[in-house]
Simulated assay, not measured.
Amino acid sequence: MEELARFGGHLISGEPWFPEEGVCCAEQLSAEFRRQMVELVRAGRTPEELAKEFQPSAQSIRTWVRQADLDDGRRQDGLTSAEKDELARLRRENKILRAEKEILRKCTAAFFARETDLPR
């Protein structure tokens, strides 16, 4: 079974695995740390064991494993990371387009209101 070496809060890669103070834990855990947690779960360790040893919650570890399984094609009951990124990008783009459409609608209404008020 694979073990992670811990020296002063650092993983094998040398990156700190613990979050900085005042910053959201999920955002600060490195992708390498998450990948190593997924590998340990796949090698037979339970998320609960890993949570006690390395501090992220067992549910976070289960979520990372589920997402890794989706990304690797091991399961089909959700969106891959690439699909999630594309969906977020399209939603942002859609929001911008709706705002632009609303601006054009208001400008057009104001223009025609002025045109109809002018004496001929």
Results as ranks from 00 to 15, higher is better:
Gly78Ile: 07
Glu2Asn: 10
Ser13Thr: 13
Ser13Phe: 09
Gln67Asn: 06
Trp17Phe: 13
Arg120Phe: 01
Arg98Cys: 04
Phe18Met: 12
Gly44Ala: 05
Lys101Trp: 00
Arg89Ala: 15
Thr116Phe: 15
Ala113Ile: 03
Arg35Gln: 13
Asp69Ile: 00
Gly14His: 09
Ile103Thr: 08
Arg98Ile: 01
Ala109Ser: 10
Glu32Arg: 12
Pro47Ala: 04
Val41Met: 03
Leu79Met: 12
Leu118Tyr: 12
Glu86His: 10
Glu53Val: 04
Cys107Ile: 05
Arg6Leu: 11
Glu102Gln: 09
Leu79Gly: 03
Glu100Asn: 06
Ser13Cys: 15
Asp85Val: 06
Val23Asp: 06
Arg66Pro: 03
Thr80Gln: 04
Ala51Trp: 00
Ala68Pro: 01
Leu90Gln: 13
Ala43Met: 05
Ile96Thr: 07
Phe112Arg: 07
Gly78Ala: 10
Arg91Ser: 13
Glu83Arg: 13
Arg89Cys: 09
Ile96Tyr: 15
Ser13Asp: 15
Arg114Asn: 09
Ile61Arg: 02
Gln55Lys: 13
Arg66Asp: 08
Glu100Met: 12
Cys25Gly: 13
Trp17Val: 13
Glu15Tyr: 11
Glu27His: 06
Arg45Lys: 14
Arg62Cys: 08
Asn94Tyr: 03
Leu79Thr: 04
Glu100Ile: 02
Ser81Lys: 12
Asp117Glu: 14
Phe111His: 05
Pro16Ser: 07
Arg89Tyr: 13
Ser57Phe: 02
Arg62Ser: 12
Lys106Ser: 08
Lys52Tyr: 00
Ile96Met: 05
Ala113Trp: 01
Arg42Asp: 11
Pro119Cys: 04
Phe54Tyr: 15
Lys95Tyr: 05
Arg74Ile: 07
Cys24Met: 06
Leu70Arg: 06
Ala82Thr: 08
Met1Trp: 04
Phe7Gln: 13
Cys24Lys: 11
Glu49Val: 08
Asp71Lys: 02
Arg91Ile: 00
Arg62His: 04
Ala110Leu: 15
Trp64Arg: 00
Leu4Glu: 10
Cys107Val: 02
Thr116Glu: 15
Leu50Thr: 00
Cys24Ile: 08
Leu40Asn: 01
Ala26Trp: 09
Arg45Asn: 03
Ser13Arg: 14
Ser60Arg: 01
His10Tyr: 14
Pro19Trp: 07
Pro47Arg: 01
Thr46Glu: 09
Thr80Phe: 09
Arg92Gln: 11
Arg34Val: 04
Gln55Leu: 13
Arg89His: 14
Glu32Tyr: 08
Glu3Asn: 13
Phe7Lys: 15
Arg98His: 03
Asp71Trp: 00
Asn94Ile: 00
Leu97Ser: 05
Glu86Gly: 03
Glu3Met: 12
Val65Trp: 00
Ile61Ser: 10
Ala51Phe: 01
Gly8Glu: 06
Val41His: 01
Lys95Asp: 05
Leu79Ser: 07
Asp117Pro: 01
Glu20Tyr: 03
Glu48Cys: 02
Leu118Trp: 10
Gly22Ser: 12
Phe112Glu: 14
Leu50His: 04
Leu50Cys: 06
Ala82Met: 11
Pro47Trp: 01
Leu90Tyr: 02
Ile61Gly: 10
Ala68Asn: 05
Asp72Asn: 14
Arg42Ala: 09
Arg66Leu: 07
Asp117Tyr: 04
Phe54Asn: 02
Ser13Lys: 14
